[in-house]
Deep mutational scan, measured.
Amino acid sequence: MDVFMKGLSKAKEGVVAAAEKTKQGVAEAAGKTKEGVLYVGSKTKEGVVHGVATVAEKTKEQVTNVGGAVVTGVTAVAQKTVEGAGSIAAATGFVKKDQLGKNEEGAPQEGILEDMPVDPDNEAYEMPSEEGYQDYEPEA
């Protein structure tokens, strides 16, 4: 019985440690998101679009440190934060509304985080759909 109880105690310690790591990862992701939003706020009209992409990228980098179902929630929060940063930029006159959601080359930025393969159960990952990809044929 002692062996059984000791095993359960060790398992509990492992769960607590994993929860603490997840909590730490979420806190880091939130900190990076805040950094990115402050970065966007300090940019001029020309830099705002690039700044919004930076927020998304920093958040995406930190999301990889967070495991399990938390990833889905962090990704949703990050996307809403990026959308909010863009709205703030438009409201303050840093950028025109028609410039939001495009990178410096004018290509749409939507789907940055949505296409990231995420499995809350950590069982399997699927690649994003290939609808947006084109076949590449090298020139002879």
Rank of each mutant, 00 (worst) to 15 (best):
T54N: 08
A30V: 04
F4Y: 14
K34M: 14
D2L: 06
V55R: 04
A91W: 13
K6L: 03
G36I: 15
A18H: 03
Y125K: 10
K6I: 08
E105Y: 07
E35Q: 07
A69E: 06
K45Q: 08
V26L: 09
V52Q: 01
P128K: 06
P108K: 07
E114C: 13
K97W: 12
A27F: 13
G84C: 00
D121S: 13
I112H: 10
V3F: 14
A124C: 10
K45N: 03
E137F: 04
Q109G: 02
V40I: 01
S87Y: 08
V118I: 10
G132V: 02
V49T: 14
E137R: 09
E61V: 15
G86C: 14
K32E: 00
E126A: 06
F4W: 08
G47N: 13
V118Y: 06
L8H: 00
E137Q: 07
E20I: 15
L100T: 15
A91G: 11
V55C: 11
T64I: 06
V15I: 15
G86V: 02
V71F: 14
V55M: 13
P138Y: 13
D119L: 03
G106F: 03
T72E: 15
G31N: 14
Q79E: 08
M127V: 15
T72L: 14
S129E: 10
S87K: 05
F4K: 00
G36Y: 14
K21R: 05
D98N: 11
H50G: 09
A78C: 06
V37A: 12
A69Q: 11
T81D: 04
K58P: 01
Y39H: 06
A19G: 15
N103V: 13
L38W: 15
N122E: 02
V66R: 01
G93M: 08
N65P: 03
A85E: 06
G47H: 11
D98K: 10
M1Y: 00
A89Y: 13
Y39G: 02
Y136D: 02
E20G: 04
P120Y: 13
A29L: 09
P108H: 05
E104P: 08
G31Y: 08
M5T: 01
M127Q: 07
V40Y: 15
Y133S: 03
T33R: 01
E123R: 09
V15C: 05
A17Q: 14
A124E: 10
V70W: 04
S129W: 11
A76R: 05
K58M: 14
Y136A: 07
E110D: 06
K10H: 11
V82P: 04
V15R: 00
V63Y: 11
K43F: 01
G73T: 15
E137A: 15
V55W: 11
K45Y: 12
P128G: 06
A30K: 05
E114Q: 00
G106T: 13
L38I: 05
Y136N: 10
T44N: 02
V63K: 00
P117K: 05
S87T: 00
V52E: 00
L113D: 09
E105I: 11
E137W: 04
G31L: 15
N65F: 12
D135R: 03
G68T: 08
N103P: 05
T64S: 06
V118F: 05
D119G: 13
Q79R: 01
E123F: 04
A27D: 03
V3W: 02
E57P: 04
E130K: 06
E61C: 09
S9D: 07
N103S: 11
K80H: 11
G67N: 01
V37Y: 00
V48H: 01
P128W: 02
K45R: 13
G51L: 09
A76W: 02
P108T: 10
V48K: 01
S42P: 01
D119V: 13
N103C: 12
N103G: 13
L113M: 05
E46P: 03
E123H: 02
K96I: 15
G101A: 15
T64G: 05
G86A: 15
V63T: 06
V66T: 05
